[in-house]
Amino acid sequence: MNAQQKEVILQVKNLRVEFGGKKNKFVAVNDVSFNIYKGETFGLVGESGSGKTTIGRAIIRINEAAGGEIIFKDRKISGKIDKQLDREVTKKIQMIFQDPMASLNERAKVDYIISEGLYNFKKYKSEEDRKKKVEKALLDVGLLPEFASRFPHEFSGGQRQRIGIARVLVMEPELIIADEPISALDVSIRAQVLNIMSALKKEKGLTYLFIAHDLSVMRFITDRIAVIHKGKIVELAETEKLFKNPIHPYTRALLSAIPLPDPIAEKKKVIQIYDPNCHDYKNNPPSWSEIEPEHFILANKKEFEEYKKLLK
């Protein structure tokens, strides 16, 4: 993959997000930078509290960026921006949420749930046009147009998550932030949702930012992965490179924790536990460096030399 040829759709530069007042400030995201190319699925993986969701929310302007900037299609969208751009960001960047049981309005019919974005932006010519758009979105996610007149409680978890995807599609977004879209689903239904997401990506040339804590799903769906720990990205690489050469001790710990559907391998497996104290960063601060083409890592000079020996 050649970075120069690819069109960058989203740039996150030295992003910093803080919570709390002056006295008890908490830095949730610290100096995070990455690019997302058009048409790829970019994965953000880390444990709860690592700040992965906060980054997603900062991109769609729910959380304010305290430092750094976010650039979407060559325009800065963080900080103060004019109203028109704000509306465009809302339209072009959409989000799929984790729990389909909680993210759909229980009192609204599917028709309204999917149309809500259209109503807000008057994104339809006539009532007929709106109905057509809803119908198309439902068909796109493999649901029947008749479902538009039903309520969310009449659907299973997988179907609800597909409604969540349909209401995103109807806005014709360019970037979709999927925040743990399958964590709350049964294993058998996860496959459905993953398949629909990849089919839509191919069909409509969508770009995904896929947020999850489970690396096994990530390997299946993403093109590149950034591993985030305590608000800092520690490793970023193409998916297969990351699985072939996991370098950072935290990435290795995450990988070793993936449950394998293979009893013999599982019983031999040794789980690695990451201890952040293994780094000596006081005297020798780490920097972001490229260890092999398109494979970046957070390390100080001494570590970098050691990590290099680990490359296969």
Binding site: V187, A191, Q192, S216, F220, I258, P261
Partner: peptide, 16 residues
Amino acid sequence: SSLPQLGVKGEDLYSI
């Protein structure tokens, strides 16, 4: 077969 660990990248996962 619907486990992503067993899936082949780029192909559809088996779904029930």
